[in-house]
Design a protein around this nucleic acid. Structure first.
Length: 274
DNA sequence: CGAGGGACCTGGTTGC
DNA sequence: TGCAACCAGGTCCCTC
């Protein structure tokens, strides 16, 4: 479910309900997420949330004494609800706040996580090696070009590598490569600097656009207010294999790369040699 | 170091 | 209708 835009939409949705509030209670119904939720998560109780930040697809609930690190995995979903709301299936955690609201984590597949760290979150093992945020100036075509010189993997898998740039998941990798006119199976080291500038630009564009549209609802993603995202209506290639390209009218192709569905237009995204 | 694949989970869809 | 196989938005971690 959540790629970077969905996580950012969730962050924006929960922030006004959380910042400045004190945690009254942390209810863990099922601690077995990707990693067990540590018992130290209870240190949150009595602390005030000073900020809700995002690094890559991790949400950081900050306090003066530590940070809760939250990841939504493939199927995670956050809701803001009143105290006492009846929990349903896969509602694994509630963080109850002093304003009478609670943050509820629902995660069907349990690929998400909820961790606690007293160090600056950026120093955490999961965050310290991450590449630049795609929507900052640190991420640009030159960065992609420099980092790709010795990489023989396909350009699609290259841009989905969190050490290269964070937040580019399967949907938006497909979309950005289409918009930049680059074949997803092109070796990363064979893409020239001009094409990487276009690719970086399209990654920024597609992510920013998806955020303003409330994310991409495929199956069941909703923002923290329960509203779906609308970006799905703007998808050019993802989920459209066999359908006509919206640019040239040719049929879109599908291949599997690293186990992930990859859709592209063979005419608009030519594979160059060398 | 880079590349590739399995692992973690549930549930919806597809096909026999 | 039943059941098995396959697929899904992520990414860590192990091997080669």
């Amino acid at each position: 479910m959540p790629e970077l835009p969905e996580v950012e939409v969730s962050r924006q949705g929960i922030t006004p309900f959380m910042v400045g509030e004190t945690v009254m209670r942390v209810v863990v119904r099922n601690a077995s997420l990707r990693w067990p939720i540590p018992s130290e998560i209870q240190e949150l109780v009595g602390l005030t949330i000073t900020a809700v930040r995002r690094r890559a697809k991790y949400l950081l609930l900050e306090t003066d004494w530590g940070t809760a690190i939250l990841h939504l995995g493939m199927s995670g979903n956050l809701r803001i609800l009143p105290h006492g709301s009846v929990a349903g299936k896969h509602d694994h955690v509630d963080i109850e706040l002093s304003n009478g609201q609670l943050l509820r984590l629902n995660d069907t597949r349990r690929f998400g996580c909820l961790l606690w760290t007293r160090e600056p979150a950026e120093q955490h093992k999961l965050l310290i090696k991450l590449g630049p945020e795609p929507l900052t100036e640190d991420f640009n075509g030159e960065h992609l070009y420099q980092r790709s010189r010795k990489r023989k993997i396909a350009v699609k898998q290259f841009i989905m590598d969190n050490h290269v740039v964070v937040g580019v998941g399967n949907i938006y990798a497909n979309e950005a490569l289409f918009s930049a006119g680059i074949h997803p199976q092109q070796a990363a080291c064979d893409v020239n600097e001009t094409d990487y500038q276009a690719l970086a630009s399209e990654i920024k564009k597609v992510l920013a656009r998806a955020i303003t549209q409330g994310g991409t609802t495929l199956k069941d993603f909703t923002g923290s207010d329960g509203k779906p995202g609308y970006f799905v209506q703007e998808l050019q290639v993802y989920g459209r294999a066999g359908e006509p390209c919206r640019h040239c009218g040719g049929l879109l192709s599908e291949v599997r790369m690293g186990g992930r569905s990859t859709v592209f237009c063979p005419l608009c995204q030519p594979k160059c040699s060398g």
